[in-house]
């Protein structure tokens, strides 16, 4: 999960506004060159009209050394497949990744992943053949969309010379739609009313989900999957089309 550290150099990539991901995947499958990416796009994507209870999801969480895709790296990846009924935590996966840039002492304290641990970790190139098929054909779910897609795309760009784009549902964004629909009025500010926190644990708490230990990639991915289940149960319906949620 994202840690908003002291240097908030917010330089993340912005993606094109795609709504028909099925069509995008079909197109990409024809143009990409790397076999892993061809395989990825050939797995296809559900149509935009697919009701939520028929969508295969996968919750993702990357722990990174910082927020800048050009100077920071992925240190761990957590992933869990799920649907609206069950979070398949028994099939959750986690990888430690050898970072392209060195770990800062600060990120060590946050993620509790040490220098020696990542020394022995595999390079992302070795992890991708396992990781990409688990993501293929599924809609990714993250809490704060600016991290996972951007870092993955940047990492692929460096290694394969080609980026990667896929649909994500952002549970933070779904919370913001509810709680940040309207900015605080002057009256609210005078009364020192606080904005509702959109952090993962605070969001979960609003749906009576238990607190989990943060900054552990698998746990954060599971936490995020549970949050989407709760959000859909409370605020959407099983028939809501996926296009209402993804971006």
């Amino acid at each position: 999960m994202l840690y908003l550290g002291p240097d908030q150099a917010n330089r993340v990539q912005h993606v094109h506004n795609i709504s028909d991901w099925q069509h995008y995947y079909q197109h990409q499958a024809r143009v990409v060159e790397h076999p892993l990416l061809q395989q990825f796009y050939n797995a296809g994507m559900v149509p935009a009209s697919t009701p939520l209870n028929q969508v295969p999801f996968v919750a993702l969480d990357f722990e990174t050394t910082g927020l800048n895709v050009d100077t920071n790296s992925i240190v761990s990846i957590g992933l869990v497949p799920f649907n609206l009924q069950v979070v398949f935590s028994s099939r959750a996966r986690q990888w430690l990744v050898k970072p392209r840039f060195r770990l800062t002492d600060h990120s060590v304290t946050v993620h509790r992943i040490t220098h020696s641990e990542v020394e022995n970790a595999a390079d992302l190139t070795q992890i991708l053949p396992e990781f990409l098929p688990l993501l293929a054909g599924k809609v990714a779910v993250v809490h704060y969309k600016q991290i996972e897609r951007a870092f993955l795309s940047a990492a692929l760009q460096v290694r394969f010379g080609e980026g990667l784009l896929f649909p994500v549902v952002d549970t933070l964004d779904l919370e913001a739609r509810l709680h940040r629909a309207r900015p605080l009025s002057l009256w609210d500010k005078l009364r020192r009313r606080q904005q509702e926190s959109l952090r993962l644990d605070a969001s979960r708490n609003r749906y009576n989900l238990p607190p989990y230990r943060p900054h552990h990639a698998t746990t954060d991915a599971i936490a995020c999957a549970e949050l989407l289940q709760a959000q859909v149960h409370h605020r959407f319906s099983f028939d809501t089309p996926i296009s209402d949620l993804w971006c």
Binding site: V86, V87, F88, S89, S90, I222, E226, Q229, A230
Partner: peptide, 13 residues
């Protein structure tokens, strides 16, 4: 612990 899956149920469901 590794075999467990998780499900969420809204109140009254």
């Amino acid at each position: 612990a590794l075999s467990i899956d998780i499900a969420y149920f809204k109140a009254d469901s």
